[in-house]
Design a protein around this nucleic acid. Structure first.
Lengths: 388, 388
DNA sequence: TTAGTTTGTCTATTGAATAAACAAAGTTGA
DNA sequence: TCAACTTTGTTTATTCAATAGACAAACTAA
């Protein structure tokens, strides 16, 4: 409670170093003079801080730039390969992983199906999977700075998976298990949260302040980015908008509530409705049928889009966000649902809120979560830098 | 965009001064030695900063405290009467105002009915109303530091009332009008937002990090306090949870959506249902009937409570807050709706989210908004202090 | 009365940012 | 080609807030 950081000279230096580093990240390549200009810091201060960053192998000089009528500037850039990050998307029946540099550029990528479900069995697959990604990392001053993992379930602040219904997990201390094995920082979060982070950092939500990422797969999960940061509720989990009741007296949901959004707008809802109409098969087959011009399937998809729109209108009224991004598997249905979603949204959301909002689809497709997981550990690395 | 505050010694001093002032506000009366102990700042630093605060008339010495075996400490306290704040609750048919000191203690209070609706007519009532509150302020070093106003409508970041349906206002530049008249800072916000602030600071939500204030009056408005601060969406307004659709194919709402929560759980919904059952009259009469033991009216109220619970379950699933507070007029129905709300909430919200959440009723009753409005301008005063 | 404790101030030191001077390295125009 | 001007980045002296430690004042306790 009374853990206030008091101000001293070291704090000033940390603040200004962060400002300089962020300027370089934002506008590289950049000279010391230009940094002084854009940050407002004195030239001498910038010189001194840049020297520290160079000593710490975070920044390097890459030769001279073009003169604007005087001495040529020495250009600086961030050393993106000063360290690497591992991102893992732990799905119900697959495992996806990337190794990225500190900028998020993918260096290595792996995918494999996952048949195990018991936590210990999953660990036994996950450990070598991660180890092989780490082994791909080139030598670098900071090495692999951390592992980020997205999981399909509720995660508490200690990194335990409290509940993952589709994997039948309860109270699984995933973070502990992994950080003991690898001895580097491990960050665990919900699949929708890391997906939101991925799209915000590398995808269609770049630079946005307030956005809601709607992960439409078997169920519906949501990741909230409010005031530029991932919102977690008081217990560390939140954003269960899939269980927002959109039909107060609708079908009962396994969560205990009635008429939950995901009962009407998820992949599962689509498949069930399709079966009732005599279309067995999975999402791929339905999309193929729609592509081939099957009117019934197109109607079905439009219906799902309409219900997606109902929930998204609620989201827009609640959060007044800059963007709502539809991601995960259902984003592949974009051509067949986009119009229905957009139309319903416009009919239902408040006019004032509609003005500023964009309806987008995930730019990273199936990689939103895995990239967000990598970003999770990159962001933690930068936070540690700032704190020390 | 590139308006970064760089770090220098002045910043340190501002940070540490704020730390010292907050320590005094939190634990007064307090000695310099104790401040040094709880903040971690050096004794000499504390002495110097306290002297500045004394010079600025924000803090004063109030004599010696009890010795613990050595020299007696000189106790310090915040001078709550260093300045005053005006809070206004501008209702559809009433005007409520308070004059408070910098701690929020009410020095003067006024209420009067409001028959006017046209903006200019309202201004002509509002100006003398505020002037009379200001005239009650004793002489003080900072004088009246600002005016906070809560209004029943959408407010943009410039302090204009974009849309207040029940007053028939559109694009009314309220802040401009008042700050031109009084020449002191004016802050305008939505009634539910200031109500949330009032309950968070002075009422049942004291010290809570994440809470949702549900203002149930003619309609339903909501104020969101997330990560200790009032959440505003991208356009500066948000939290229109009254227009959350809880019946996707329910009654059409004037907002364009269908099945909006406020159509089923507001005072207006109650009165309409009562009329259908042959009970004309207003909320007071219904509450009196319930009090007198009228079973039909009690059932009616329980029904409203149930629908309130439906929406609050959604809120809990969305935000995983520490508390949900029911305020405004309907909070007076607490004895007749509390059980129904609680029961529905427990049936419908996710188990994990239910664990940490408290269902509360506004402690300030009808004064949540007016006290929050006063707090709005007090908080702005402290922010200005920190910035200079 | 004396020894020990607590409070709050004073003094010298540290370290980060800064303005100003400056050297180095460039451009430009006659 | 050269003198005048520009731009870059470093060096130097100064300022200012925080700090440790010394210290005086005020008190308790035995």
């Amino acid at each position: 409670m009374t853990k206030t950081t008091t101000g001293d000279q070291a704090l000033i230096k940390r603040i200004n170093t962060a400002i300089v580093l962020e300027a370089i990240l934002r506008e590289e390549p950049l000279s010391r003079a230009k940094i002084s200009e854009v940050t407002g810091l004195n030239k001498a201060t910038v010189s001194s801080l840049v020297q520290d960053l160079i000593d710490n192998q975070l920044v390097r000089e890459i030769g001279t730039g073009v003169s604007s009528g005087g001495r040529k500037p020495v250009m600086l850039e961030f050393i993106s390969t000063a360290g690497y990050s591992v991102g893992i998307d732990l799905g119900v029946n697959y495992l996806r992983g990337v190794l990225t540099d500190l900028r998020g550029a993918v260096v290595a990528e792996r995918r494999e199906p996952l048949s195990a479900s018991d936590p210990d069995d999953v660990f036994n697959v996950l450990r070598p999977f991660i180890r092989s990604l780490i082994s791909e990392a080139p030598d670098s001053p900071f090495g692999v700075v951390g592992i980020g993992v997205g999981v399909p379930g509720l995660v508490d602040s200690s990194g335990s998976v409290l509940y993952a219904p589709n994997m039948n997990w309860r109270e699984v201390p995933l973070k502990d298990a992994l950080s003991r094995t690898f001895g580097i920082p491990v960050l665990i979060d919900n699949e929708a949260n890391v997906g939101a982070l991925g799209e915000r950092t590398f995808g269609s939500g770049r630079g946005v302040s307030n956005m809601v990422y709607v992960s439409v797969g078997i169920g519906i999960g949501t990741g909230l980015i409010l005031q530029r940061t991932l919102y977690k509720g008081s217990s560390g989990f939140s954003g269960e908008l899939g269980h927002l009741s959109v039909e107060a007296h609708g079908k009962p949901c396994r969560c205990g509530n009635r008429g939950c959004w995901e009962l009407y707008a998820s992949e599962q809802a689509l498949l069930e409705q399709a079966r009732e109409l005599g279309f067995p098969g999975d999402l791929d087959e339905l999309l193929a049928a729609a592509e081939a011009g099957d009117e019934k399937v197109r109607m079905l998809l439009a219906g799902i889009g309409e219900y997606l729109g109902v929930g998204i209108a609620n989201i827009v009224n609640i959060f007044n966000p800059d963007a709502v991004i539809i991601g995960n598997r259902m984003s592949r249905a974009q051509p067949w649902i986009e119009d229905a979603v957009g139309k319903t949204l416009e009919e239902r959301a408040l006019n004032f809120h509609l003005r500023g909002v964009q309806l987008l689809f995930a730019e990273l497709g199936g990689r939103s979560a895995v990239m967000g997981a990598a970003e999770l550990s990159i962001a933690a690395f930068f936070d540690r830098l700032k704190a020390s």
